[in-house]
Design a binder for these strands. Sequence first.
DNA 1: ATGAAAGCGCTAACAG
DNA 2: CTGTTAGCGCTTTCAT
Lengths: 335, 335
Amino acid sequence: MTVTLREVAAAAGVSIKTVSNVINGYAHISARTREAVEKAVADLGYQPNLSARGLRSGRTGAIGLVIPDLKNPYFAELAGSVMRAASQHGLAVFVEQTGGDRAQELAVLASPRMRMADGILFSVTGLDQADAATVAFPVTTVLLGERIFGAGADHVTMKNVEAARAATEHLIELGRSRIVALGARPHEVSGSAGLRLRGYREALEAAGIPFRDELVVDATPWHRADGARAVRELLAAGTGFDAVFAFNDTLAFGAMRALGDAGLGVPRDVAIIGFDDVDEARYSMPALTSIDPGRDEIAETAVRLLAARIGGDSTEPFVLHEAAFRIVTRESTGG
Amino acid sequence: MTVTLREVAAAAGVSIKTVSNVINGYAHISARTREAVEKAVADLGYQPNLSARGLRSGRTGAIGLVIPDLKNPYFAELAGSVMRAASQHGLAVFVEQTGGDRAQELAVLASPRMRMADGILFSVTGLDQADAATVAFPVTTVLLGERIFGAGADHVTMKNVEAARAATEHLIELGRSRIVALGARPHEVSGSAGLRLRGYREALEAAGIPFRDELVVDATPWHRADGARAVRELLAAGTGFDAVFAFNDTLAFGAMRALGDAGLGVPRDVAIIGFDDVDEARYSMPALTSIDPGRDEIAETAVRLLAARIGGDSTEPFVLHEAAFRIVTRESTGG
DNA sequence: ATGAAAGCGCTAACAG
DNA sequence: CTGTTAGCGCTTTCAT
């Protein structure tokens, strides 16, 4: 049933080495030979056995993508971008979900399945700085996400502080000054929430707008309902505000809903900007202004770095790449 | 660097066959030998080389999941379920997106990457009945989704007609009689839209409620904005209705938004039910009643069938499995 | 219950 | 420019 190199070689009247050379695009082959081989390959429907190639070459041609959860639109879209980038490099992508859980992240790293990959893209969430020293990556790894997490790997991240600052400045430019920071986490410093809050503060300071504790609200775990609840509580408490910087788009959707229910207009009464620029932001009503954190750039860069490491640059110093972000202006801020 | 069976065998003072037996859980091994081997495995941190195993055994231990688009929450969640089910069987999952496009579906099937899988789960969208005769699946395939698409493979699908009928009946039981079918497609018969419309008709007929053309509205491509637009047009046209059966949840979210904007209460003025039961249905406001089409059952069954085929039941007749659905009642229908 | 040895299909030295 | 050949690490007869 399965056709091997040997059979192709026999059919083409050459040695298997020549067939291998043709298949792998080796340069110095006479046109006649190449044609004969290509014909035999086509006639027999030859397809290389990837396990054999992998055993011999030490490469599988696959990379692993380890993320918290595909249910989260940000990660689903990131996975899509990674798959697109990987296919440019001829790499297959297999995905592992961790639930953002420390124990599961460790379990996935230790899993024998990971050895099917030449390298992994690992979006760390549960592991923390303290684990950095202990954790052993089973294969070449590129880290995704905002944590620093030691230096044992290349790292691709987003400009959380700068993007958050720009988001806040965008609202300030609209003439808003009572801006809610929706999704802040009081005790977090180095995670997304901490960094985005820092950008928020910087923008306020630069504009000379006082920072008000009552406008900084927690809304864990950043689901739609959390955004709605938080905004409802603000309204109930009589806290005045004219803009919301939501730390992710999902929170923003919830906030918009709560504002609508309260009869407030977006952006007339309250302008809103989100973060992530998920697909749905284009389709919400009103369409949501958001920060595109550079998802495609993150995916492409991460895959490129990983492919390069796999290709052999193991001596290069580790790289930290911060993707460029941009504000995507839509109806929710008057665009 | 990499530890092989040979080294483990040397360390344990046995042959590589014995080590292999221990690792693969072969029965007849003395306790002392097993312990010695396990100790050596642990000490040396041995991990099997999956390419070598694959070459020898003819199995890679991976399956492919071919779907239209991870951006679509239904497929993102399906992928999550598939990965969970696959990991029960010790299988890795790699994902390929097709964009639901016929050409890309063919390209993916022909891709050498597919040969990295022992089998694939293929959610067909672009290929149609006419392709059924021509298409060659590169490996064992289980089809996902509502199309019949020939009989050259096992097939796992959902009860579209029955579920749609139940959804409509649920609205009728609430006392509603002017029920919008949101997302119908006039000329489609065998796709989801056609089947769901059929269930809708059946429910109306059974209840003696007249079928009204003006309540059946197209809203392609089933995005949130399409649902909102369609509902707005209905309202503008003065078409009275007291319920909406949305053919997917995203349409339902859009519809709810448009109703809210128009000052109509859900479910007071208009009850709404969706289809898919995506995660977001729990978090929308109001929370959306929806049809769970049996996503987990679909994933588990498909993986189980595929694993069985891979395991060797190639002579078994092809199976058609229709997953059980259920209505998940939430606020949007007064739950 | 354990060992010896063949060979899965491919790539890459090394020859010629 | 092309052919010969030696393994990659594992599973699996076939012996013992």
